[in-house]
Simulated scan of single mutants.
Amino acid sequence: MSERDLLMIPGPVEFDPEVLRALGAKTASHVAPEFISTFGRALKRLREVCLAPSAQPFVVAGSGTLAMELAVANLVEPGERALVVNTGYFSDRMATLFERYGAEVVQVRCAPGEVPDVAEVERVLAGGRFKVMTATHVDTSTGVLAPVEALVKAAGRHGVLSVVDGVCATAGETFHQEAWGADVYLTASQKALGVPPGLALLTVSPRALDAWRSRRTPVRSLYADFGEWLPIMEAYEAGRAAYFATPAVNLVCALEVSLGQILREGMEARFARHRRVAHAFRAAWRALGLRMLPVSESVAAHTLSALYYPEGVDAALLGRVREQGVVLAGGLHPQLKARYFRVGHMNVVGPGEVLATVGAVERALAAAGHRAEPGAAVAAVQAELLAAR
């Protein structure tokens, strides 16, 4: 990939230059006063971005999978029951994590591209004696947007802790953690939060922390134990240094910058911008005759598109698009991996990136022999963007 290629995969994404300058700055000591202040602001801002004023933020060096493991390791003990609302590849991973920590796992599944019925989930919750329920807000493998508000509220009605995997959603899809009653919202830095890979992030409700404090057995993982990280987070937010493991200093500095940008844009404005961008892409896909993996637009994410290759076209399309200066991602879901591709559209993506990407896809499809009216997709984007002004 050249420096001029446009990165349009569902993470890592294109990053704002100010964020990259923070990442590339001279590394400070993790106990330096200026870094203590920066880390403290980042924690406060994460709470604001997740709309969770009472939650405890955690910022830990690691991937989104570590964020998932932090939630699982601290909230379940061997023999307790966990319900996984399964919408794809990363729901499968969550189920695997629960099993590794000794939980009894029940799953409510659906076909790829669909979302489970909330009424069915509630029926399972009602008869289950579950400790925790998890749902993936946007499954990066399928581009499906789960009805997390309804799911979280259903869990709350049955006294079940709710964990929402927001790795491909946080700061891109509408989510009101405290108002909806979600106990844990977990994410990673490299998607709509707009920071290069390397940070696992969570906002944890007081109820979830109480459940952790009431454990009968120690957390099996040292690195994932809230007990090791909570004093660190509390100290930095209070303006004091503390040590368990060295923080990712430059990534935390980049996070503080990005979160500040997100809050200046405003959460509702940012959610709306991601919806506008997604609608513009969908207009293009319709013009090109491409079918989305999600079964309807009502369950399609606004942070990425998952699209079946048209008849006669295969994964060689991705190479043709790259020749046009745009990088896309192949399929990930094991059942469908060779049949579809994915386009990420989150963080700083705006009209210019949409038009460049759609133009590249249109030209690559034409080179692959796919028949569509020349220029129709770009025109559809322009019409959608103008109508949304």
Results as ranks from 00 to 15, higher is better:
V164G: 03
W212L: 06
R215Y: 12
L202C: 15
D225H: 06
A272C: 03
W212Q: 02
C253N: 14
L222W: 12
G194I: 01
A200C: 05
L259P: 09
H176M: 12
A208C: 08
D165S: 07
N250P: 10
A242G: 11
Q261T: 01
L186S: 12
S189H: 02
A272D: 11
L202T: 07
P218C: 12
R220N: 03
I232P: 04
G227V: 01
R273I: 02
V184A: 08
T170C: 11
G198C: 12
S221G: 07
R215S: 12
P231H: 08
Q177E: 08
G198S: 14
L186D: 06
G156R: 15
V249W: 06
F175N: 07
F271M: 04
H176C: 11
A188L: 07
A208F: 06
V257W: 00
G172Q: 08
L230S: 05
R264K: 14
S189D: 01
P218A: 12
E228N: 14
Q261D: 01
S162V: 05
S189W: 01
R270T: 10
D183Q: 11
G266V: 06
G172A: 08
D225V: 07
T246H: 13
D225Q: 09
W229F: 04
E234W: 00
D183Y: 12
L230P: 01
